[in-house]
Design a protein around this nucleic acid. Sequence first.
DNA 1: TTTGCGTATGAACAGTTGCTCAGATGATAA
DNA 2: TTATCATCTGAGCAACTGTTCATACGCAAA
Lengths: 116, 116
Amino acid sequence: MPIDRCQCRIVHEQQVEKARKSALPPAEIDKLAQFFKACADPTRLRILLALHQEEMCVCDLAAFLGVSESAVSHQLRLLRQMALVANRREGPVLYYRLTDTHVSQVVLVALDHIRE
Amino acid sequence: MPIDRCQCRIVHEQQVEKARKSALPPAEIDKLAQFFKACADPTRLRILLALHQEEMCVCDLAAFLGVSESAVSHQLRLLRQMALVANRREGPVLYYRLTDTHVSQVVLVALDHIRE
DNA sequence: TTTGCGTATGAACAGTTGCTCAGATGATAA
DNA sequence: TTATCATCTGAGCAACTGTTCATACGCAAA
């Protein structure tokens, strides 16, 4: 019987209907959530902020962050899958960089928010 | 002995040093991560997007989202603690709204990113 | 004060996350 | 080929997250 989980009697039908009409498709909501998840970890944030300055290899990032190279590699894979970073091979070394400016933009606006 | 966890011999000292100098303080990194965590859940994202249109009460949000009012209330508390939403009481009803435009801005830029 | 409604809260549990460890790639040089 | 280096990957586990359930709170009308 819990089909409609809201047991309230007073529901502003118009507002709910309006929200339903302008809602994004579930697939897009999930993608958005995934994107924010990628930014929602201190280690990954520091990676993104570091790469915002210039490209770096896994080894450098590990030294900068003070964590194991394995941990960095795992995080970079996640960021790669989300298309936030890309890499370039030079011999045995992989240099990572941000894929586009959207990432920096998002982080900088968020920074404005928490600083205000 | 694992003070310096990076066992690599080739570390680009200059780049690491540059990254260290321009790094944000840990407190700010954590705040940023918390902010993104608040956006990193489909339910909370849908709440934020709905409130971007107009203010809504807990009951309406529950109906719109198709989840229990308790679940909505828990999520709203989190968003309140992160100062992403604020509320206004009218009798027994609490109407929630976004606190500022930064949230919408961030979400919209992120949307651009995933759509490109 | 008592009742009823909308909302808030704490405990508890399944699912997820980020790390470490050990081993496997792939490129390069001997 | 073999050895070495930088990096990647899968398994495993402690810590965290989002939901449900039961209960408590706060306001308004009776």
